[in-house]
Nucleic acid binder design. Structure first.
Length: 386
DNA sequence: ACGACCGGGGTCTGCCATCGCG
DNA sequence: CGCGATGGCAGACCCCGGTCGT
């Protein structure tokens, strides 16, 4: 192959003239490259020889430039790929284009995850088909590849992916769950089957340890509630569960109920983050003169409060208190803390304008959809004008 | 007709460390 | 040693609407 010619002693020379060559390559027409693609179709394999170290494949680079790939970025991320003798960049580009990806998207994918160009066409077809078993359209897959090329290309093991999907289905996850998993946490599908199994078994064990009666159902339901679980480490989840248990002094039954209920979300926080948030909430509560049991009740009622960082939480509380709401009301309806500071601020202003009485009407109005809130405000304005 | 209660849904990668292998 | 594959990490909410009791 002519590509091999560049292997010889002239490689220093080639490097010196690198930029010149690349500039020239910009002018090559796409038509030319399209025909090149045909020739290259089946010439890739995972055990292709590398060029001698520090020599990059000249024609590969030319192709990448024509595709609009950010070669500097690619080199920085996976330098070895640029030294491979046989790669599939043009086939990959054509493949993705046929799936509806724009040139810009293709370039961005290869720039961010260069190893993508080492996959064979057969491999790509098969992997795409496996993803299509979960999604309805190619466009959905393209948009995920654009978001996270690594999720699709990092593993070359289609057999494992096949088994993985079968495994997830066997857990009782339905197609809607699978779609959500793959959309939101695409890395789940490039985890090894083994890793996913470990997490599921880990969750089942937790359930049993806490005296749960249906570990399989527990694992499935908690995963469908929090699609990030499978892309976190068992160490992280375990540490968080332990921290929750000890710092809130929860009984097994309380902890199990928390995890099965609204507590699934906070498990994926980094260990430090959860610890910090628990600690700062403890301080805040004690500063306000509440007991440990009040804190426990609050967290069991609204675990998401531990998702909120100290700074944000303080601003939110300030905002609500300034708006004429009492701390007691907040602790009774903590869900209002779900809403953004901006949202809360705007609503408080509106409510003040129409003279809303929180003491009489409660604060549930803050925890409602925009549509309902606006309707309510309109009604209240109308009434007060009459 | 209303609002409290409750559960669900969107979103989320890009980098580094390590390991086994040739 | 350098590669490909793979595990793990930091990051630090917000919003909507069905339903049911009144």
């Amino acid at each position: 192959m002519e590509k091999m010619a560049s292997v010889s002693g002239i490689r220093t020379l080639i490097r010196i003239h690198h930029s010149l060559v690349l500039q020239k390559s910009f002018r090559r027409s796409l038509l030319q490259l399209a025909s090149t693609c045909i020739t290259w179709r089946h010439c890739s394999g995972s055990n292709d020889p590398l060029l001698p170290s520090d020599t990059e494949n000249k024609s590969l680079l030319e192709n990448l430039y024509v595709l609009g790939v950010d070669v500097k970025m690619a080199r920085q991320r996976q330098p070895g790929v640029l030294r491979k003798s046989f790669t599939n960049e043009m086939c990959l580009a054509q493949f993705l284009q046929e799936k509806g990806a724009s040139c810009k998207v293709i370039a961005s994918i290869v720039s961010r995850y260069p190893r993508a160009i080492t996959r064979s066409l057969d491999h790509l077809e098969e992997r795409w088909q496996l993803w299509r078993n979960v999604f309805n359209t190619d466009a959905e897959i393209v948009s995920i590849l654009d978001r996270s090329p690594e999720s699709f290309f990092r593993s070359s093991d289609n057999e494992d992916l096949k088994k993985n999907i079968a495994f997830l289905i066997s857990l009782g996850l339905n197609s809607k769950d699978l779609r959500r998993l793959l959309t939101t946490a695409p890395r789940t599908f490039s985890n090894t089957l083994e890793l996913n199994k470990q997490m599921v078994e880990f969750l089942e064990d937790i359930c049993l340890e806490l005296g749960g009666k249906n570990p399989e159902q527990f694992a499935t339901s908690i995963i469908s509630k929090n699609v990030y679980l499978l892309i976190k480490s068992t160490k992280r989840i375990g540490t968080n569960i332990n921290n929750l248990k000890t710092s809130l002094m929860l009984s097994d039954a309380e902890l199990l109920a928390l995890l099965q209920g609204k507590g699934a979300d906070i498990l994926v926080l980094s260990n430090d983050c959860l610890k910090r948030n628990i600690h700062s909430l403890e301080e805040k509560m004690s500063l306000l003169g509440f007991k440990e049991s009040d804190m426990k009740k609050l967290v069991l009622n609204y675990p998401n409060i531990l998702y909120i960082g100290a700074a944000t939480l303080n601003s939110k509380l300030d905002c609500l208190l300034k708006g004429g709401i009492t701390i007691k009301q907040i602790l009774e309806k903590p869900k209002v803390l779900d809403y953004s500071i901006q949202n809360i601020t705007e609503r408080l202003k509106e409510l003040q304008r129409v003279g809303y009485d929180f003491e009489k009407n409660g604060i549930n109005i803050l925890d409602s959809s925009k549509k309902r809130f606006v309707a309510k405000i309109e009604k209240l304005s109308g009434v007060s004008e009459e």
